[in-house]
């Protein structure tokens, strides 16, 4: 009985320090992200594109996937808008280069997340997690963070697994 109490005290101590460390790193290391092209999600969504139109592996793989230059070129082969940013796409295509999209959401290495599971089998809407990205006209300049709390809250609500190894790899 008593041993258990000590264990809990120990646990609290650890948790506290852990939280502190986490916070410290989180605050000091968040860096600005600049995308190679100032991509306008809103325009694309308004134009009638589905999220999976560009994030092509979202339904059947773990990662949603980023559009390859060739995919962008299917629409942007010729000018669609007057936006000078659009020319950048064609420049990449001409150089046979992939557009170096920068990652804005980076899960820690010990987390396993699968889009397929959430989108395909559980039929979650993209906005359940990615809220307003479809409404943004500028790419986010800071990394987007997800907290385990938000994952857990939803998992508990939806009666999904809260087993550690189901998400921690």
């Amino acid at each position: 009985m008593q041993a258990n109490k000590f264990r809990i005290i120990g646990l609290v101590l650890v948790a506290g320090l852990l939280a502190f460390t986490w916070l410290r790193i989180g605050l000091s290391k968040s860096t600005e992200i600049r995308q190679p092209i100032r991509f306008n999600h809103k325009k694309h969504v308004q134009g009638g594109l589905e999220c999976s139109g560009c994030h092509q592996t979202v339904k059947d793989q773990a990662t949603a996937g980023r559009p390859e230059t060739s995919l962008c070129m299917t629409c942007h082969e010729a000018s669609v808008t007057k936006n000078p940013e659009e020319n950048l796409i064609r420049e990449y295509a001409q150089r046979h280069e992939e557009i170096p999209w920068q990652r804005v959401i980076k899960l820690p290495d010990h987390v396993f997340f699968s889009h397929r599971r959430h989108v395909s089998t559980e039929k979650l809407d993209c906005t359940s997690c990615h809220e307003a990205i479809g409404q943004s006209s500028e790419p986010p300049s800071r990394p987007i963070k997800f907290s385990m709390d938000s994952c857990l809250a939803c998992h508990q609500k939806m009666k999904a697994s809260v087993d550690c190894v189901a998400c921690h790899k």
Binding site: P108, H110, D163, C164, V165, H168
Partner: peptide, 11 residues
């Protein structure tokens, strides 16, 4: 865990 696997949470 419920399926009998012994899990190890590195973090």
């Amino acid at each position: 865990n419920p399926e009998g696997l012994v899990g190890q949470v590195y973090s």
